[in-house]
Design a protein around this nucleic acid. Structure first.
Lengths: 123, 123
DNA sequence: TGCGAAACTGGCCGGGTGGCCAGGACTTCC
DNA sequence: GGAAGTCCTGGCCACCCGGCCAGTTTCGCA
């Protein structure tokens, strides 16, 4: 398990589109210090698709809503969020309500999942 | 804006670890046909971390717990999960309780976030 | 064959959540 | 001077959630 810091970087290629995958394979196969992972092999990093359609502009969320959303993603309750932001629980619930509406979610768990899916927040 | 089929492939580098990011930047910055994306720029693909330590083998979750977890990630309530799996709400709550325990979460939202973070589920 | 672990179900209850109503203060834009 | 948008607060209430108690069956293993 010698972790030589000059060891090759193993990169996994996780792209479905054959055309793009082929070109990346060709481009990356002859780089000293870099190696593409064999199927199933553990890799330090992976190349994944970035479909632009997934993120149609950050959905109009206000700063306060983003604050609340971030704390929701940490599993914080309304009470904890209120304490953290220095506002009342009622106001938190107000913002959560707006979030559920804007994110088209049925509950706070769904809201966090939706937000994470479209890159509004990072888990 | 001609979409030449030999156009550069734009690759986003989404790696937190500075050391790895730097090495990848150095390795990938002089490859004809490949270009690293500027911050915020739309990319065809992205390089993301694949740290094995993050996933210490799928944490011992039973099949039933995985079923419940998947539905939780969809924002389903205990009642909906019960209906979906054909079991009672009490049993759902039992599994949710085990999930909270095993995932070290304070609530269902936190559980889904934790599970997504360590790759147990895919959002 | 006995024993424990896992899965399933139930009742109960305190507290959390989300939806509804209402109001006020502030800034920005027309 | 409005009008619109954001942010903040309160009360009320049905429902959901998570934790507690208890029990059952089923399974694999020693």
């Amino acid at each position: 398990m010698s972790e030589d810091k000059t060891a090759e970087i193993v990169l996994a290629l996780e792209i479905d589109a054959p055309a793009l995958a082929d070109r990346l394979t060709a481009l990356l196969s002859n780089i000293p210090g870099l190696r593409l992972a064999a199927p199933g092999e553990q890799a330090a990093a992976a190349i994944v698709a970035r479909d632009p359609r997934i993120m149609p502009e950050d959905i109009a969320l206000t700063q306060r809503e983003l604050d609340v959303l971030a704390l929701m993603a940490e599993g914080a309750s309304n009470k904890m969020i209120a304490r953290q932001l220095g506002i009342s629980v009622h106001t938190v619930k107000f913002h959560v309500g707006s979030l559920l509406d804007k994110l088209d979610a049925t509950g706070r768990t769904d809201a966090v999942a939706h937000a994470a899916r479209r890159g509004v927040i990072e888990l």
